[in-house]
Simulated scan of single mutants.
Amino acid sequence: MLTRAHGTSTITETIYPRRDTHVAGQRAFGADITTDGPHIRVRGPVRLHPADVHGDDIRAATAHVIAALTAHGTSTIRGMHHLRRGYQRLLPTLAALGAHATLTTPENPHP
């Protein structure tokens, strides 16, 4: 969401040292995001574009879903199984809000 804000936003993580697993994926979407120890800096606004990314944990997968919703085009997010921990009905809820989201599995690659 900070990619939409004007200027530089800084997030400082003081509890968990690896709360930056989403950074590489966000860069793939076109985010101007950097890390420096516990600090994550996001410069904006930037226009995000579709990407093929992997969410390594629930926070990363959620950040990638939000980025995909703001990007114009079709994105692929792997690692969506992490979202089942806290967001079991995320895709139906997003669809009810007008998002075009499809869940595929390795056994069913075509929805």
Rank of each mutant, 00 (worst) to 15 (best):
residue 1 M to I: 01
residue 2 L to A: 07
residue 6 H to E: 15
residue 6 H to P: 02
residue 10 T to V: 15
residue 12 T to I: 13
residue 12 T to H: 05
residue 14 T to Q: 13
residue 14 T to D: 12
residue 15 I to F: 13
residue 16 Y to C: 10
residue 16 Y to P: 03
residue 20 D to N: 14
residue 21 T to D: 08
residue 23 V to L: 04
residue 24 A to M: 03
residue 27 R to W: 08
residue 27 R to F: 09
residue 27 R to H: 04
residue 28 A to D: 13
residue 29 F to V: 11
residue 30 G to I: 01
residue 31 A to S: 11
residue 31 A to C: 06
residue 34 T to L: 10
residue 37 G to E: 03
residue 38 P to W: 00
residue 42 V to A: 03
residue 42 V to T: 06
residue 44 G to V: 12
residue 44 G to L: 10
residue 45 P to Q: 07
residue 46 V to R: 15
residue 47 R to M: 05
residue 48 L to D: 10
residue 49 H to I: 09
residue 49 H to W: 01
residue 49 H to M: 06
residue 49 H to G: 13
residue 50 P to R: 11
residue 51 A to S: 00
residue 51 A to E: 11
residue 51 A to Q: 01
residue 55 G to T: 10
residue 56 D to L: 02
residue 60 A to F: 11
residue 61 A to D: 01
residue 62 T to M: 15
residue 64 H to R: 06
residue 65 V to F: 06
residue 65 V to A: 03
residue 67 A to D: 07
residue 68 A to C: 11
residue 69 L to T: 03
residue 69 L to K: 04
residue 70 T to E: 00
residue 72 H to L: 09
residue 74 T to I: 13
residue 74 T to R: 15
residue 75 S to P: 11
residue 75 S to V: 08
residue 76 T to E: 11
residue 76 T to F: 00
residue 76 T to A: 03
residue 79 G to Q: 00
residue 79 G to A: 00
residue 80 M to Y: 09
residue 82 H to R: 14
residue 82 H to G: 00
residue 83 L to A: 00
residue 84 R to D: 15
residue 84 R to V: 07
residue 86 G to S: 09
residue 86 G to V: 08
residue 88 Q to R: 15
residue 89 R to C: 02
residue 89 R to E: 14
residue 90 L to Q: 07
residue 93 T to P: 02
residue 94 L to T: 08
residue 98 G to W: 01
residue 98 G to T: 06
residue 99 A to I: 06
residue 100 H to N: 14
residue 102 T to R: 13
residue 102 T to Y: 05
residue 104 T to F: 03
residue 104 T to C: 12
residue 104 T to L: 09
residue 105 T to N: 07
residue 105 T to A: 09
residue 106 P to F: 00
residue 107 E to F: 11
residue 107 E to R: 12
residue 108 N to F: 12
residue 109 P to C: 09
residue 109 P to I: 08
residue 111 P to A: 15
